[in-house]
Design a protein around this nucleic acid. Structure first.
Lengths: 210, 210
DNA sequence: GTGATCAGATAGTGGAGCTATCTACTATGG
DNA sequence: CCATAGTAGATAGCTCCACTATCTGATCAC
C-alpha cells in the first residue's frame, strides 16, 4: 500500500499523515528504496485509532503519543490504563485550599463506602477533587447527597467495562481494546446519559418551568 | 467592587476579565463615570461559572457564550439544556455510511428498549452515533452486547441528575444549576468511573496479563 | 496634586494542529 | 526510454484560539 492509498483508505490527508509520521503517532512504512516506503493494514488501523483518540477522546497530539507508546511498549494493562487515565485527566480548575480539602474529604468518604483505594499520586483523584471543588465553588454543595448514588452506578458501569475487556479473544489486542474502551467509553456514556436526561425530563417534568 | 478586587476575588487576571467582557461572557459593570465601573458578587459568580465551563467542561469561548446567553434569555429549562447539549456535542469522527447506518440502527433499538425518543435534529443523537461508529471502525463491535446495560445505567444516572435539579429551592437558579450539573456532571462521573475501573480491575484481575 | 488605578482600544504572543512547497528521487504506462 | 505522476523528507507557513501586553486619556484615594 502506498501513501495515496493509505490516505484514501483512512480518509486522512497525505500532508497530515506525514505530520503524524513526524510526530511519531504512526510507525514508518517498510522501505523499498531510499525514498519509497510501503504501508499495510496496521497503518490504516493505527491511523483510525489516532483519529478516534483525537476527535472523540479530545486528546492532544502529545497525549495520543503517550498512550500509543504505552500500548506499544507495555503488556501490562494496568500500566497502559494508568497512562491513558493520565492523558484524559482534565486541566483542573483553580480551587482554594479549604474547598479542596472539603472535596478530598468527601471523596475519601465515598471511596471508603465503595472499597476504592485512593493513592495520592493518582491523577484521577485530582480530576475528581477538582470537579467536586468546581461544584462547591458554584454553590452546588447539595451534590453530596447524591454522590454515593453516582459512585454506586460508576461501580456498575465499570463492571460492564471490565466484562467487555475480559471477553476479548486475542491477547495482544486486549491492551488496545481497553484503551479504546476507556477513551470512547466516556463519550458514549455521556451521550446515553443525555438521551436519558431528555427522556426523564420530558416525561416527569413535561411543561418545563417557563 | 473595582476591577482589581474582582480579579483577586475570582483569581482571573485583569487582562483576561477585560477579554471576557469584550467577548460578552461577562456583563459590563455599573458605570460611575465615562471610564469607571463597579462590579458585584454576580460578576464573581459568573466569572467562576465561565472558568468552570472552560476548564472542566472543556467548552470553547464561543460555546460558553451560547450557553450563557441561553441561561440569560430563557426560562425554559428544556431549551437551555438543548443549547448546552449542543455546546457539549463533540466534533464527530468521520464515519462511512454503512457504519453510520449500523450505529443508528443500534441506537434506535436501544432507545426503543428504554422508551427514549430520538429526534433526527438532536445533536446528542449525532454524538452517540458518531461514537458508536468509532467503536465499530476500530473493530469493537462486541460492544452491542453491553449497550443495553449501559443504557439502563444511563437512565439511572439521569434519574439522579433530575432529582438533584428538582430539589433546588430558588426558581431562578434552577436553569443555571441544570447547566452546571450537565457540564460538570460528565467530568465527575467519568472520574468516578475510572476510580471504579481501577478498583474492579485490581481486585478481579490482580496480576495483569503482563 | 500626585501616584495608582481604570476603561476601552489595539496589537501582539505562543501553542496547537495542520497544510503547502520544495527537492531529489522512484514507479509506471506507453 | 521517456513523460508523467507519485513519493520521502525537510522546512516554512497558515489559521485559529485564548489570552496578554501596551497605550491613552481619564479618575480615584490620599
Amino acid at each position: 500500500m502506498r501513501m495515496a492509498e493509505l490516505s484514501a483508505e483512512s480518509g486522512v490527508p497525505v500532508a497530515t499523515i506525514k505530520y503524524y509520521l513526524r510526530e511519531g503517532l504512526l510507525p514508518p512504512g517498510v522501505r523499498t528504496s531510499p525514498n519509497q516506503a510501503r504501508y499495510d493494514r496496521e497503518h490504516v488501523r493505527r491511523l483510525k485509532l489516532v483519529r478516534a483518540l483525537l476527535d472523540v477522546g479530545g486528546l492532544s497530539i502529545a497525549r495520543v503519543r503517550e498512550v500509543l507508546d504505552g500500548i506499544d511498549e507495555h503488556d501490562d494493562i494496568h500500566k497502559v490504563l494508568g497512562i491513558t487515565q493520565r492523558a484524559l485527566a482534565l486541566s483542573r480548575i483553580a480551587v482554594d485550599e479549604p474547598t479542596r480539602e472539603w472535596a478530598m474529604g468527601l471523596l475519601v468518604e465515598v471511596a471508603a463506602l465503595r472499597g476504592w483505594e485512593l493513592r495520592p499520586d493518582n491523577p484521577v483523584v485530582d480530576s475528581a477533587v477538582g470537579t467536586l471543588g468546581a461544584f462547591a465553588t458554584l454553590g452546588r454543595t447539595e451534590l453530596v447527597e447524591r454522590l454515593a448514588g453516582y459512585a454506586e452506578l460508576a461501580d456498575r458501569v465499570a463492571a460492564l467495562d471490565l466484562a467487555g475487556v475480559r471477553a476479548l479473544p486475542e491477547r495482544e489486542t486486549v491492551v488496545e481494546a481497553a484503551v479504546v474502551g476507556t477513551v470512547l467509553g466516556d463519550a458514549l456514556f455521556a451521550a446515553l446519559r443525555r438521551l436519558a436526561q431528555e427522556h426523564t425530563s420530558a416525561t416527569s417534568w413535561p411543561a418545563g418551568p417557563g
